[in-house]
């Protein structure tokens, strides 16, 4: 009996330890980012770092303003959400409520496949097809632009939005829908007035997940956005927070390298903010 208890306790201990690994990683990354990111901000000055629009890290008189990167990341993510959420949301309603089993199987398979494609492949296809396509379609000198990045990101966030929304929609109790139908509502009325509101916290989670994925993507975006540190324009060459870190890291040194860590810190704060917002909205929707 006693032996069994010891064994139980041991297992508990092991699971606790495994659980703490995640917590430990988060703490370690946070601590490292803060420690590595602060020095450059102190040298450059917080205001100059965040609100100066000129980034010239290797110039004779270097300037480290990341306003273009911040705005680009915000615009790019907003654009991807604007395109990706309606498509993803309506797809998930269709798949969860409307689609015949056969079609549902095919579409779900395609969505899972989309989720599994590595981001470098998105980037490559974007570079070879999308960028020349935008150049020809809109008659601009060069297709590598914010628009190309938005389209790539919109496609990349579709699987997260669709999968999480489907799960939320399927978790709506069938009695709700039956009651609505019994009261004489049409199926479409039922889906949009009963099922979707009941699943709203899950759908909100899906959107935030999409935001998180879009703002954190580096590789695919780097290949289609042109990477010049300009203020964002739809057809202009732009650099995101993520690509600003990734593109210059390999040869950087001194204050330039420290400033890259500071950019990573800013990105990290953005993601914390998104998570906090998500928790806030989820809590409120549960209470309300």
């Amino acid at each position: 009996m006693n032996k069994q208890k010891t064994f139980e306790n041991m297992i508990h201990g092991i699971f606790l330890l495994l659980g703490l690994i995640t917590v430990g990683c988060v703490l370690l990354i946070t601590l490292y980012l803060v420690l590595a990111g602060i020095p450059a901000i102190r040298t450059i000055g917080l205001k100059d770092f965040l609100f100066n629009a000129r980034w010239a890290s290797t110039a004779k008189e270097p300037s480290y303003g990341i306003l273009p990167f911040i705005l680009t990341s915000v615009y790019g993510t907003a654009g991807a959400i604007l395109i990706g959420v309606p498509i993803g949301f309506l797809t998930s309603v269709y798949l969860a409520k409307m689609a015949p089993a056969k079609i549902r199987m095919i579409v779900s398979g395609a969505v899972s496949l989309l989720a599994g494609i590595p981001s470098v492949v998105y980037g490559l296809v974007g570079m070879m097809v999308l960028v020349p396509g935008i150049r020809k379609l809109f008659r601009v000198p060069d297709g590598a632009s914010l628009l190309a990045a938005i389209i790539v990101l919109a496609v990349m966030i579709l699987p997260s939005i669709i999968n999480v929304s489907i799960t939320a929609l399927e978790a709506v109790p069938k009695e709700y829908e039956d009651a609505s139908l019994a009261l004489g509502a049409t199926p479409v009325e039922t889906w949009f007035k009963v099922s979707v509101p009941a699943a709203r916290s899950g759908i909100a989670a899906a959107v935030v997940l999409g935001v998180g994925r879009a703002i954190g993507e580096a590789m695919a975006v780097m290949m289609v956005s042109g990477n010049a540190p300009n203020l964002p324009e739809l057809f202009g060459s732009v650099r995101f927070l993520t690509t600003a870190v990734a593109s210059e890291m390999s040869y950087s040194s001194g204050l330039q390298r420290q400033a890259l860590f500071s950019i990573a810190l800013v990105l990290f704060l953005f993601i914390m903010l998104i998570n906090a917002a998500l928790n806030f909205f989820l809590k409120r929707s549960k209470e309300g």
């Binding site: 010239a56 290797t58 110039a59 004779k60 000198p141 060069d142 590598a144 780097m222 042109g226 990477n227 010049a228 540190p229 060459s237 650099r239 990734a246 593109s247 390999s250």
Partner: peptide
């Protein structure tokens, strides 16, 4: 052209 180039794209 140090520090004076106006790049449309900066690739890695």
């Amino acid at each position: 052209t140090e520090d004076a180039c106006r790049y449309r794209q900066e690739l890695t």
